[in-house]
């Protein structure tokens, strides 16, 4: 059974002025444990599609069904709670909270979920071991390299034990070594923990290692391979 299903998904911006059809009749299914990259040129609708799947944006028409829940029918407050409990996000520019330590950044989402301290401590330790930054967990993001910050962002996305992780161009700001390191970690998590990763990217280094590629063109699915 698919974990994510999009049915006739459409997103049109500026409907009344100059309509821009960012996502056009997209029908896709994603299975648990996928390591998928959504690719295509700039402006093809990769980020819009990820935003629709992640509930950050609402479709003009069509449906997004996640694990049996049609998130298009949820109220705004319910969507926020759904995101908190089911979806992990990794952003292009890390977006860590600079006044919190790496540990606090990862712990924060669990605090939002209402986890108690002992559970948080245990989970944070495991995650930092997995991303290889156990000795840096008390550092502030400003003391870390871009690659390290993005690894912390992955740990933060995983902290809430989401059903899948959406990563919007996660390697765009990283050099080759950092990209390779990040992809190693994500692939390892995918293989060992069966974590589902869905990327939007036009980075060839990510495309090479993705197990499934979805190519978008002008908002439509051109190819799935």
């Amino acid at each position: 059974m698919s974990i994510i299903k999009t049915i006739n998904l459409n997103k049109i911006y500026n409907e009344t002025v100059v309509p821009v059809h960012a996502v056009k009749d997209v029908n896709l299914e994603f299975e648990q444990g996928e390591f998928t990259a959504i690719i295509g040129p700039s402006g093809c609708g990769k980020t819009t599609l990820l935003n629709l799947i992640g509930g950050l944006d609402s479709p003009t028409s069509g449906e997004v069904i996640i694990d049996g829940t049609n998130i298009s029918n949820l109220k705004p407050k319910e969507v926020i709670d759904f995101r908190l409990r089911n979806i992990g996000f990794v952003f292009q520019s890390y977006n860590l909270v600079p006044v919190l330590t790496a540990k606090e950044n990862v712990e924060f989402i669990m605090q939002l979920q209402g986890s108690d301290k002992s559970k948080r401590d245990e989970r944070v330790k495991i995650l930092f071991e997995q991303i290889g930054l156990i000795d840096r967990m008390n550092d502030r993001p400003s003391k870390m390299s871009g690659g390290q910050q993005q690894r912390v962002a992955v740990a933060r996305a995983l902290a809430s034990k989401p059903k899948f992780i959406l990563a919007d161009e996660p390697t765009a700001n990283l050099d080759s070594a950092a990209t390779s390191n990040l992809l190693d970690i994500m692939l390892k998590l995918n293989e060992t923990e069966n974590t589902t990763f869905i990327f939007s990217t036009h980075d060839s280094r990510v495309i090479e290692r993705a197990r499934r590629l979805i190519t978008l063109k002008d908002g439509q699915v051109e190819k799935v391979e």
Binding site: G54, L56, K77, I80, D81, R83, L84, R85, F89, F91, S93, N95, V97, P98, I109, L112, Q113, R156, A157, S160
Partner: peptide, 16 residues
Amino acid sequence: VREIGMLMAIGMSKIK
């Protein structure tokens, strides 16, 4: 803006 957007995206409620 980016940081507050991230907090809202990961599930921080509007009231928080």
